[in-house]
């Protein structure tokens, strides 16, 4: 019985392609990729706002 599932492994394609990176979080990593001329985009992530419960329920009904 095989230990690994039969799902095709796509990630070995990764090694041969030009790396194109989306960085979510610390801008430091995006800057270091840019220094290496890696095509990258930076997502300035911030925590989602948590609303008070009753406001959240009202929004759910409206949307």
């Amino acid at each position: 019985m095989k230990i690994m599932p039969e799902t095709p492994q796509r990630s070995s394609d990764l090694f041969k392609r030009e790396l194109k990176v989306i960085n979510v979080g610390l801008e430091l990593f995006f800057n270091e990729l840019t220094r290496q001329s890696v095509k990258s985009v930076q997502v300035d992530w911030i925590p989602p706002r948590t609303l008070e419960k009753d406001l959240d329920e009202i929004l759910d009904k409206l949307l």
């Binding site: 990764l14 392609r17 790396l19 194109k20 990176v21 989306i22 960085n23 979080g25 985009v41 992530w45």
Partner: peptide, 16 residues
């Protein structure tokens, strides 16, 4: 971000 780079093939995540 992915609309601008639809062929992104790697991501780094550093959020809480």
């Amino acid at each position: 971000a992915l609309r601008t780079m639809p062929d992104a093939n790697f991501a780094i995540v550093s959020v809480p």
